[in-house]
Simulated assay, not measured.
Amino acid sequence: MWYAIIELNKMKTLILIIPLIGLLSCASKPESPQPVAAPPIVAEAPPAEPVPEPVAAPVEEVFDPATVTVQEYTVTKAEIERFVTALNGIVKAGNYNGWLAYLAKAYIDEISSPEFLDRMSKTAPRLVSQKIVLKSAQDYFNHVIVPSRANSRVDDIEFVTHTRVKAITENRITKERLRLYELERIDDLWKIVN
């Protein structure tokens, strides 16, 4: 009987000790508080932007001078001859403002630029030999255009496009073809563009 009592006491002790061991193991090993995990941040993708279709570079048409009709050539040459004849009168008179009216805006800007004036001053043989330094478009008109273009004549034209032509003059002795002006029809008027 003692044996049963001892066994019973051992069991009671064991029943009491097991939870105590569990408590002691928890107490002996303090757990650090676990941080509460924040919900994962899900980055929202920006709304997809439509991908633009590749834009093909504008196809520049190659001008074929063979498309110029005889009538177009004849009419255009007559217009250019009248243009140059009227321009000659303005140049002979030294009418700077009248001359400007025959130029395209982009060409006026070009011949007014310091780079253009400097280049002309350093490369035009007559300007270099006379030590003339151009400071304005009016200087260019007085020192380059008046002496060289007052008696211009159009011997031929070459089409660059249907609305852009080169007025050609020919040296009567050497037969060399020289570009007199490059003109473009702008707002239905011929203007010097180069």
Rank of each mutant, 00 (worst) to 15 (best):
P47A: 12
P47Y: 04
A48V: 07
A48Q: 12
A48I: 08
E49V: 11
E49C: 06
P50V: 11
P50N: 15
V51A: 05
V51T: 12
P52E: 14
E53P: 01
E53L: 12
P54Q: 01
V55H: 12
A56M: 15
A56R: 13
A56V: 15
A57P: 01
A57R: 04
P58D: 12
V59S: 04
V59C: 06
E60F: 05
E60H: 07
V62P: 00
V62L: 03
F63I: 03
P65Y: 00
A66S: 15
T69N: 06
T69S: 10
T69D: 04
V70Y: 03
V70D: 13
V70I: 12
V70K: 08
V70W: 02
E72Y: 12
E72S: 11
E72K: 13
Y73D: 02
Y73E: 08
Y73P: 01
T74G: 00
T74C: 03
T76K: 00
T76Y: 00
T76C: 02
T76H: 00
K77H: 11
A78G: 12
A78H: 08
I80V: 09
I80W: 04
I80F: 06
E81C: 01
E81D: 12
R82A: 13
F83W: 02
V84H: 01
T85Q: 15
T85I: 01
A86G: 13
A86H: 13
L87H: 14
N88I: 08
N88D: 07
G89R: 11
I90V: 10
I90K: 09
I90Y: 01
V91I: 11
K92M: 08
A93M: 03
A93P: 07
G94F: 00
G94N: 03
G94L: 03
G94I: 05
G94T: 07
N95S: 05
N97D: 15
N97L: 00
G98Y: 10
W99T: 00
W99L: 00
A101T: 08
L103W: 01
A104M: 11
K105G: 08
K105N: 14
A106D: 15
A106Y: 07
Y107V: 09
I108R: 14
I108V: 14
I108W: 05
I108E: 15
E110S: 08
I111N: 11
I111A: 03
S112P: 05
S112L: 07
S113H: 07
S113L: 07
P114T: 08
P114N: 04
F116R: 02
F116V: 05
F116A: 04
F116S: 02
D118I: 04
R119T: 05
M120S: 13
K122A: 14
K122D: 11
K122H: 05
T123S: 15
A124V: 14
A124R: 10
A124Q: 15
A124S: 11
R126L: 10
L127Q: 05
L127V: 02
S129C: 01
S129P: 00
S129Q: 14
Q130W: 06
K131N: 08
K131S: 06
K131Y: 10
K131W: 10
I132Y: 08
I132D: 03
I132S: 02
V133E: 02
V133W: 04
V133M: 06
V133I: 12
L134A: 05
K135L: 13
S136M: 06
S136G: 13
Q138I: 10
Q138V: 10
D139Y: 02
D139A: 12
